[in-house]
Computed example of a mutant assay.
Amino acid sequence: MPLTPNLRGALFMSLSMAGFTFNDIIIKFLSTGINMGQIIFLRGAVATVLIFLLARHRGALRPLRMLADRWVALRVVGEIGGTVTFIIALSHIPIATASAILQALPLAVTMGAALFLAEPVGWRRWLAILVGFAGVMIIVRPGTEAFSPYSLLVVGTVLFATLRDIATRKIHAAIPSLFLSTVTAAAVSISGLFIVAPLGGWRPVDAGQFGLVAAAGCLLLVGYQFIIMSMREGEISFVAPFRYTSFIWAVLLGYLVFGDVPDNWMIIGGFVVVGSGLYTLYREQVRQGQEIAARAPARPTP
């Protein structure tokens, strides 16, 4: 029995989140033997080559002068900041904890769009955003023995990723996504070189380690490709909630690979954040439905 477009979209979104999470698992595994700056550089180099080849195959390459735009620059800054903060944090805290905090990203993007792009956000969604951020505080638990300052780096990742996503909305449609991704991946890769020395200097990389770094770069491409396919297959309202399967992947793989068992507070906080995000998606669909109904011509009365 063939899958419906919505179910295919949901499957593709789940596979995308799996790709990203497996990438994170590899990065965390390598962090004990390789400088994190090296990982960012090497993984970024592999990803850049792969995305460049895909962009060239699809005719998406453009002259670099098209990138002379402040929104492009802000997007690159957001991508670099998000990558560096997340990868450094990932080497010090459980992957499930990092993933749970990252689930606040849709809430942060909604808030940023309201504050900086003047997008309408009703009181229900503002309340959901506040509840979601309270969930993040439950996970981070500042002032307790369970608190790790590296958790705040993931909060920084959310802020940088919000900057990236808001800037992306403002970039001119004439700049192809693959071209933008190629340039961004190259910039992120180069940024890794600047933090190699502060993080302890370059260490020898053997063939096995480089193979894992290359696999992480391939998984990034898989994640990005499947997320595009998911949005093209199914309705966003149906597909988007499956983005939160990354939290399930992180808990499962963190336990299987590293033996990490999330405590009750982390699980509670994670579900508070995810629940708030799902409610925000629901209210966005309600708002869009109301706008469509308001624009529809009134039926003549018989």
Rank of each mutant, 00 (worst) to 15 (best):
I93Q: 13
A118G: 04
A161I: 14
G112W: 05
Q288P: 00
I248N: 00
V136Y: 08
T157W: 07
V77M: 14
Q290G: 06
I88G: 04
P302W: 11
T21F: 03
G132Q: 04
A134D: 00
T168F: 04
T280I: 13
Q103T: 08
Q103E: 06
K28V: 12
G37Y: 03
L50S: 02
G211A: 09
A118Y: 11
A118M: 14
T144M: 10
G254H: 03
G234F: 03
R65W: 07
A73F: 12
H92Q: 15
T85N: 05
V196N: 00
T162M: 15
M229E: 10
A146V: 09
T168V: 03
A186M: 13
L61I: 14
P94R: 12
L199G: 02
D165C: 08
A118E: 12
P5E: 05
V273D: 10
I248V: 15
I27W: 07
A73L: 15
S276Q: 09
I195F: 03
A55T: 09
R287H: 10
F41V: 03
I268E: 03
V222E: 02
I87D: 01
S230T: 02
F41D: 00
R65F: 09
A73R: 03
A214V: 06
A68D: 08
T4I: 06
E291I: 12
A100Y: 02
G112H: 05
R203A: 07
A173P: 11
I228V: 15
P94N: 12
G270Y: 10
V49L: 15
S91V: 13
L178T: 08
V131P: 02
F12C: 05
S99F: 01
I292V: 14
A89W: 12
L74M: 14
A128L: 10
F242C: 02
I267A: 12
A45Y: 03
E119Y: 06
A89N: 05
I138K: 00
A134M: 11
G269R: 12
F116Y: 14
M137A: 15
V261L: 09
M266E: 13
L105D: 03
F29D: 14
G275Q: 12
D206H: 09
T83I: 01
E79T: 07
F41A: 14
G132Y: 02
L153G: 04
L212F: 14
V155G: 01
A60Y: 00
W126D: 01
F194E: 01
G259A: 04
T168H: 06
V84I: 15
T157V: 03
L127F: 14
G9I: 08
V72G: 02
